[in-house]
């Protein structure tokens, strides 16, 4: 016991001068004490894994959602006419309306804001963008504010005349746009999917 430093009096009183365990342990031998320590550590590890593995398995609960594609007819998303097809003639200049593709209304990520802009633009003056704000996924207002698309959550603003470019607020990128065609009797159908990722990336 000549190696004990002057500061280790506590250890001496705890383990007694006859205990030789610390010296043996330092040599890295498999002693009963070392083995038991590793068994206890293994026990802790198994305990942690028993929680970690089921915790990571929890993430797999995501629903498959139907996304908008070419040929989907646009219907009113809200209000009294909810679910009925939108006719191009029903939208006045410089107004907007929220739309959902028919039969795919369960997935609200499909919500579209349909805006009538100048006649030269879009399909017969109509343009369609994703209504899900690219900032944090709120749905934009179903009407124009100062001729701009506005998100009520964090005041992002988009230009309906310029591919929904960001005019202000925290949104990082424009709203994805949806190509549309206007068919007979003014029925509006999607001519493809959105041209970008919906909502916050």
């Amino acid at each position: 016991m000549s190696t004990v430093s002057p500061n280790s009096t506590e250890r001496l009183t705890l383990e007694g001068p006859e205990s030789g365990a610390p010296e043996v342990e330092d040599q890295g031998l498999v002693t009963r004490r070392n083995l038991l320590k590793w068994v206890i550590r293994l026990g802790y590890g198994a305990f942690a894994a028993a929680f970690a593995i089921p915790a990571l398995a929890l993430q797999s609960l995501t629903q498959e959602q139907q996304v908008v594609e070419a040929g989907d007819q646009l219907t009113y998303a809200a209000g009294g006419q909810s679910g009925q097809p939108i006719r191009a003639g029903e939208l006045q200049p410089n107004t907007a309306v929220l739309a959902l593709p028919q039969n795919k209304t369960e997935n609200q990520q499909n919500t579209v804001i349909l805006v009538r802009v100048a006649p030269g633009q879009g399909a017969e003056g109509l343009v369609a963008y994703s209504a899900i704000c690219t900032h944090l996924g709120c749905s934009v207002l179903g009407r124009l504010v100062n001729n701009e698309i506005a998100c009520p959550c964090h005041a992002s603003r988009f230009d309906p005349r310029n591919d929904a470019a960001v005019l202000g607020g925290p949104a990082p990128r424009p709203l994805p746009s949806l190509p549309i065609t206007v068919g007979p009797e003014g029925v509006i159908t999607a001519a493809g999917g959105f041209n970008g990722e919906i909502g916050p990336a």
Binding site: A77, A78, G79, L98, L100, Q108, T111, A131, C138, S139, V140, L141, G142, P152, C153
Partner: peptide, 9 residues
């Protein structure tokens, strides 16, 4: 109930 139309939150 939750729907596509959004009010300021």
């Amino acid at each position: 109930p939750p729907g596509p139309a959004n009010t300021a939150v």
